[in-house]
C-alpha cells in the first residue's frame, strides 16, 4: 500500500472534494446544527466516527453484492447497514463509553439518515477503493465535514448579531453564506501534491 495514495485520498476528501461545500452532501445537518460552535463540533466528531465505521462495514457488504451481481441493490443494502450500525454503536457507546455517548448526544442517531454517510460508502464503490482506502476516505470525509461545519458555525454565530435586510434574516443569509464558502472551496480544486 502506497501511503501517497492514501494522502491523496485524504487531501481530496478534506479540501478538494469536501463533502459539504463541493459535493453538496449532508447539507441538512450542515444547516441544522451549525448555530452554535460547540454543537457543530459534537456533530462533526460524530460524523467522523460513523463515516469511518460505515466505510469499513459496507466494504464486505458491497463485495457480497458484487459476487451475486446485485449491484443495483447497493443503496438499499447500505442504508440498512448504516441504520443498523448506528443503532449498534449507540448501544455500545452507552454501555462502554458513556462520556463519549453523552458528548455525541442526539447527533449520533441523527446521522442515520445523513446523506453524506450514504454518499461516502457509495463513492467508495464507485472509486473502486480497497478496504484501507475506503476507511481513510470515510474518516477524512468526516474531517472535511467537521472543518466545513465548524467554519460555518463560527460565521453564523457572528451573523446572529448582524443586521441583514428582513427578507434575508435567518436561513436565507445562512444559505448565501454557505454558497460563498463553497465558492472559496472551489479554490482548492487545482490543489495537487507534487510527488
Amino acid at each position: 500500500m502506497d501511503w501517497r495514495i492514501l494522502l491523496d485520498i485524504a487531501l481530496g476528501a478534506v479540501l478538494i472534494n469536501n463533502f459539504i461545500l463541493v459535493q453538496f452532501l449532508g447539507i441538512c445537518p450542515f444547516m441544522g446544527v451549525s448555530k452554535k460552535m460547540d454543537t457543530s463540533i459534537g456533530m462533526g466528531f460524530a460524523v467522523i466516527f460513523v463515516m469511518g465505521l460505515a466505510s469499513a462495514l459496507c466494504y464486505p457488504v458491497s463485495l457480497l453484492l458484487d459476487a451475486l451481481e446485485l449491484q443495483y441493490m447497493r443503496t438499499v443494502a447500505f442504508i440498512l447497514v448504516i441504520a443498523a450500525l448506528v443503532q449498534l454503536v449507540e448501544m455500545f457507546l452507552k454501555k462502554a463509553v458513556p462520556t463519549l455517548y453523552e458528548a455525541l448526544g442526539v447527533y449520533l442517531p441523527l446521522i442515520t439518515t445523513n446523506c453524506a454517510v450514504l454518499g461516502v460508502v457509495l463513492l467508495n464503490v464507485q472509486n473502486d477503493y480497497n478496504f484501507i482506502e475506503s476507511v481513510v476516505y470515510g474518516v477524512t470525509g468526516g474531517i472535511g465535514f467537521l472543518l466545513a461545519i465548524v467554519l460555518f458555525s463560527s460565521i453564523r454565530e457572528r451573523l446572529e448579531f448582524s443586521d441583514p435586510p428582513k427578507a434575508f434574516k435567518g436561513f436565507p443569509i445562512a444559505l448565501v453564506t454557505a454558497g460563498l464558502m463553497a465558492l472559496c472551496f472551489m479554490g482548492f480544486s487545482g490543489l495537487k501534491i507534487p510527488w
Binding site: L70, A77, A84
Partner: peptide, 25 residues
C-alpha cells in the same frame, strides 16, 4: 435480491436484539 436483503436484515436485527441485551444499561 429478496433473499440477500432478507438475510442481511435478519442478521442485523438479531445482532441488534442481542446487543440490546448485552449492552443494556
Amino acid at each position: 435480491a429478496v433473499l440477500i436483503l432478507g438475510i442481511l436484515g435478519g442478521v442485523f436485527g438479531l445482532v441488534l436484539a442481542i446487543a440490546s441485551k448485552v449492552f443494556a444499561v
